[in-house]
Simulated assay, not measured.
Amino acid sequence: MSRDPRPGEIYLEFRPVGHQVQVTAIDAATGIEVSIFGPASASREDLKRVAVRKLQRRIAQENPSSAPQSDPTLY
């Protein structure tokens, strides 16, 4: 059964790698994918939050016209 992805839908995968966890976040609409590594002792919510923020940043870099305007002097 297939369905169209909804805007903002994100798939997350948690994969243990030794004493770390690899978290992969995929935007369903665009297929853009990012990964992060974090300690296995970190909470899943913290790892999820970091992965989703990284994905949102990557999407904004891919499509600058949809990115919110920010002060270019801030880093």
Rank of each mutant, 00 (worst) to 15 (best):
I26L: 11
T24D: 01
P39L: 15
A60H: 08
D27G: 03
S70I: 12
F14I: 07
H19V: 15
R3W: 14
A25K: 04
E9H: 04
F37A: 13
N63T: 10
R3T: 08
R15T: 10
G38T: 06
F37K: 13
I32V: 14
S43Q: 08
F37G: 12
A29L: 13
V50G: 04
V17M: 14
S66E: 11
Y11W: 10
R3Q: 12
R53D: 07
K54R: 10
G31P: 02
F37C: 13
R53F: 13
L12K: 00
S66P: 01
I10K: 03
E62K: 15
Q56F: 07
G38M: 07
H19P: 00
S2N: 09
P72N: 09
E33N: 05
I32R: 10
R44F: 11
A29W: 03
I36W: 02
D27L: 06
L12Y: 00
P68A: 15
P39D: 14
R44M: 12
A42R: 05
R6T: 08
V52D: 00
V50P: 00
P64E: 04
S43A: 13
L12R: 01
L12I: 05
T73Q: 08
Y75H: 11
R58L: 13
A42M: 05
S41G: 04
P68F: 12
R57I: 04
Q69I: 15
A60V: 07
L12A: 01
A60S: 01
H19L: 13
G38R: 02
L47I: 04
G18D: 05
S35T: 11
P39S: 15
A28W: 08
R58N: 06
P5H: 07
T73L: 14
R57Y: 06
N63E: 10
I10N: 00
G31Y: 05
S35M: 08
